[in-house]
Amino acid sequence: MSARISREDLRKLVAEWLAAGKKVFGPVRVKAGLELYAPLDSAEALLLDGWIRPANSIKELVFPRHEALYGYRILKNRVELVDLAAEIPEQIAIGAHPCDAAALAALDKVFNWDYRDEFYNRRRAATTVITMACAAHDDQCFCTSVGLGPEAERGSDALLHERDGGYEVRAISEKGRILLGGLAGETACPTAQTSGANTPPRRFDSAQVAAFAKEHFEDPYWAERALACLGCGACTFTCPACHCFDMVDEGNGREGVRARNWDACQFPMFTLHASGHNPRANQGARQRQRIYHKFVMYPDKFGEVLCTGCGNCSRNCPVGLGVLPAATEIGNG
């Protein structure tokens, strides 16, 4: 059985969540041409039309750009560590795209292989992802080249399909069922996964990208491709799946916090040794690392690519780089 909800009722639902004190994130229009996932202060702020995908991703809900790991207090030669882990309120991402939700499933593995990162896990457990299947795509979308699609359900707790002025609602996980209750159906939408106008064409073969990155590790291609790179890291920060972080002390000699902040493989300091040696001494090596991590290293460990085809790295790159231009060149042998 599938269930339907009108646009008005969807906004009412969001209003109810907000009234109940839940944190709700969704796409909002910051200004013409700039949409972001942001906390909604009202149900009206939720953007339902006229956008392809926000310039950021929902990873901030589970992996904030800044997070205190614990506090420290220094009293003469003794140190006291302070637990700063506050209760994580229930949070909902409404209107995430499949390329956002799928990234959470990939992050789950990184943050839990062997050592379990409870900072991540607590936020993940408190988060329900209500994904909106994509109604359109642009020339930067390439989910179908990395095994996903505009209606893929990986990582989502429920999926909304736009139909006849409203939405078909389907619960995917127990969390989705609990949040939506009787509003959600259980059956898949009848639409075929990869045929609609919402489906980007397959733009490259990710196995070929992996093969090139492995076999042409020292190829001059990387340095040439990176000549324009500014090393700004926008690709990594706006990526739903990039998860590299730095750990620093913020405070003084008496008290402070040890925090983790988003970091980027595009920065020279990222791999700089204390000796001055840097294994990735130029921007070409850093651009290669981003492709290598997503298409070789992560798949080696976890059996899938660490890229969901959202296209954010290219959309946000000031000089037109990112996964898609590179993968199109090296993944179409």
Partner: peptide, 17 residues
């Protein structure tokens, strides 16, 4: 290789795979 977390999360110490 430079490390931060030491537990396979922070993403910087990989040598190839």
């Amino acid at each position: 290789n430079r490390m931060k977390c030491g537990v396979g999360k922070c993403g910087r110490c990989n040598a190839g795979p």
